[in-house]
Nucleic acid binder design. Structure first.
Length: 401
DNA sequence: CATCCACAGGAATATGCGGCCC
DNA sequence: GGGCCGCATATTCCTGTGGATG
């Protein structure tokens, strides 16, 4: 019986591993593996085709849940067009931004401007009014007679930002062509996760942005299996993922939302686990373990992101497991005293408890105890070890867990 | 069968904070 | 850089609830 560490080191040295291409186990692997979206690829290409003939394509709106390949498809079409364009001398500019990567509307417009080729002296990083930035973008397009396509990913997020400020930038973007008579054009491609997001928009924006729509439906289990199979061929040495394991991944990821990204994450984690255990096959057990691990990571992440008082409440629930609001509250007050923080009112704590319940980390049950009144009893749906593990790095909480 | 417990949870209001506009 | 607005958090005050209990 050899030392497991030796075995691992031996394996690492010999370079033997069931995973042959680690890169391809990430969802947004390049070059992208086509995710069974032929008809959507075609639709997107069709919509953008006019630009190759120097005329303006329709604005385009792309919908779909996360992990349905929206972004991958759009990027692929854009890359292809870009290739064609580079061989010719059409003044076409394809620009991609993700709303979530920019915190403000200003930042987003500046990022668009940079990609258009506006330098810092023409477009400073701060100090301009939004309308001024916008004007400069248009001027650039007009002067260069550019045909620009702006791809805005997570456009629903941008729409939220815009709604807050009351600016109608989206409207202006969609109607920019009317201000560009003399030269150039601007086409908008919006990508949205939220299928209901359109309803929140100004109807004028909808009519111009939604000139064409492509809807990405969720993958079903069979499709996910095919996608996984392709990735497996690419990334594992032959016959190292057995059939039941593959089925289980597809069932786990497909059963929920048809999210290919999750399926591939699951495959990767299961593969890594199998590799670590020196197994020459990914089995159902590895998949189970991987699924659990991903679940736990999510729990830990969400636990860590709670504000201090929510954390205190969670610890209070842990200390008085399965107990009523009143008991949790006095336990919480004790904790506050120990860590030297002002306690919040019971009303706020009841509110917090129902907020935490929504996140699924605890579950509550209303019970009537006759003369002993009405209360709600809460208990953890996760293990108390999980809480301890997640909070142990926090200085204020160290004494009480 | 009225009473009354121990809270749930709604409404109005206060406080604090970050972004934006001059 | 001060004033303002919108939003999230927190407090105060309140009404409602269902069944054990006397």
């Amino acid at each position: 019986m050899s030392d497991p560490i030796d075995r691992m080191l031996d394996a690492a040295e010999s370079g033997k591993s069931i995973i042959k291409n680690r890169e391809s186990l990430h969802y947004s692997y390049k070059p992208p593996i086509i995710l069974h979206r032929e008809s959507e690829l075609e639709q997107v290409t069709q919509s953008l085709l006019p630009i190759l003939k120097q005329s303006r394509p329709s604005n385009l709106l792309v919908y779909g849940k996360p992990g349905t390949g929206k972004t991958l498809v759009v990027r692929r079409v854009i890359d292809k067009i870009q290739e064609r364009v580079e061989k010719s001398d059409f003044p076409i500019k394809l620009i991609y931004t993700n709303s979530k990567e920019e915190t403000t509307l200003y930042g987003l417009l500046v990022s668009l401007g940079r990609q258009l080729g506006l330098g810092e002296e023409e477009l400073p990083n701060t100090g301009l009014a939004i309308s001024e930035v916008f004007k400069r973008l248009l001027t650039k397009i007009r002067n260069g007679k550019l045909n620009a396509i702006f791809v805005i990913d997570e456009i629903d997020y941008l729409a939220q930002l815009v709604a807050k400020t009351g600016k109608d930038i989206l409207y202006q973007l969609t109607r920019a062509n009317e201000r560009l008579e003399e030269g150039g054009s601007l086409t908008l491609v919006g990508i949205s996760n939220d299928l209901t997001f359109k309803e929140k928009l100004d109807p004028r924006v909808i009519s111009s942005l939604g000139e064409e729509e492509v809807v990405f439906t969720n993958y079903d289990v069979e499709q996910i299996k095919k996608i996984l199979q392709e990735r497996i061929n690419e990334s594992f040495i032959e016959n190292s993922v057995n059939e039941p394991a593959l089925n289980l991944i597809a069932a786990l990821a497909g059963g929920e939302h048809g999210d290919a990204r999750r399926a591939i994450d699951l495959l990767r984690v299961a593969g890594e686990l199998a590799e670590r255990q020196q197994s020459d096959k990914v089995t159902v057990e590895h998949v189970r373990e991987a699924s659990q691990k991903i679940e736990e990571n999510k729990e830990e992440k969400s636990l860590k992101s709670f504000p201090l008082h929510e954390k205190l409440v969670l610890i209070a629930i842990m200390k008085a497991n399965g107990s009523s609001t009143g008991e949790i509250y006095s336990s919480y007050k004790n904790l506050c005293k120990i860590v030297g923080k002002d306690e919040l009112t019971q009303r706020r704590i009841t509110q917090m408890l129902s907020e935490i319940e929504l996140s699924g980390l605890i579950s509550g049950r209303l019970i009537h105890q006759g003369i002993h009144g009405r209360t709600k009893k809460y208990k953890l749906t996760i293990s108390s070890e999980m809480i301890k593990k997640s909070f142990k790095d926090e200085l204020t909480l160290q004494d009480i867990i």
